[in-house]
Every structure is written in structure tokens, then in C-alpha cells.
């Protein structure tokens, strides 16, 4: 399951330019499609809501603090990670949804 999700995630890694990529992470059945994601500084992650109710992705980590706000099924919101570090991502509504993004140089 993990590798299938990881593979699916990587399939959406689209090189925007020579040094940055975009990743897609789904929110389905109140879970992120991956629990750990390794990206490079400058990469973007698009969080897409696949559930028939709202999610609200955020992080309060020192490496990256953000709040994507709440959005419904079918919508996605993207965020670029410019600095290396470990970013713990959660859903503010559903606390069991957790994802760690490891941003490397």
C-alpha cells in the first residue's frame, strides 16, 4: 500500500524546471496518500482533497509554517518548500492525518 501510494505520488512529480518538481498528495478517507515524502528545496507539493468533506492542511514546523485553509472535494492547494528541514503536516480538522515532508538541499 505504501509503495503503491509512493509510486502514485512520484508519478505526479512533474519537473517544472531543471531544479524544481511538483508533487501531488491526495487526502482520501481522512488520510494523506503518503505518510513520508522526501523532496528538494524549491519543490512544490499540491494537496488535493479527495474526500466528500472539507480538509485544512497546515504545518507549524519551524522549517515551514503554513495554513492552506479549508477546501472541498476535488480542489487542491499547493505550497512550495524553499528551505531544507523536516516539516510535519497535519489536517486541522482531522488530527489523525499526519505527513512528514523531508526537504533536502
Amino acid at each position: 500500500m505504501f509503495f503503491r501510494n509512493l509510486f502514485g505520488c512520484l508519478l505526479f512529480a512533474i519537473a517544472a524546471n531543471a531544479s524544481a518538481a511538483e508533487f501531488k498528495v491526495d487526502q482520501k478517507d481522512k488520510q494523506f496518500s503518503v505518510s513520508h515524502l522526501k523532496i528538494k528545496a524549491g519543490d512544490t507539493v499540491n494537496f488535493v482533497n479527495g474526500d466528500p468533506f472539507f480538509h485544512n492542511v497546515f504545518s507549524l514546523s519551524d522549517a515551514k509554517t503554513f495554513d492552506l485553509g479549508s477546501y472541498p472535494q476535488g480542489q487542491g492547494r499547493a505550497i512550495t518548500f524553499n528551505n531544507p528541514g523536516v516539516v510535519e503536516v497535519e489536517c486541522a480538522i482531522h488530527s489523525q492525518m499526519k505527513l512528514v515532508i523531508e526537504v533536502t538541499k
Binding site: 485544512n56 497546515f58 507549524l60 495554513d67 485553509g69 479549508s70 497535519e90 486541522a92 480538522i93
Partner: peptide
Amino acid sequence: GRFNQRKVKINHGA
């Protein structure tokens, strides 16, 4: 409410 634990706008009063 939850805002005291996670200072995200949607948690205010949740």
C-alpha cells in the same frame, strides 16, 4: 478550544 493547541484559524472555537 482547539486553537490553544494548534494555532490555525479554523481551530478557533473548534
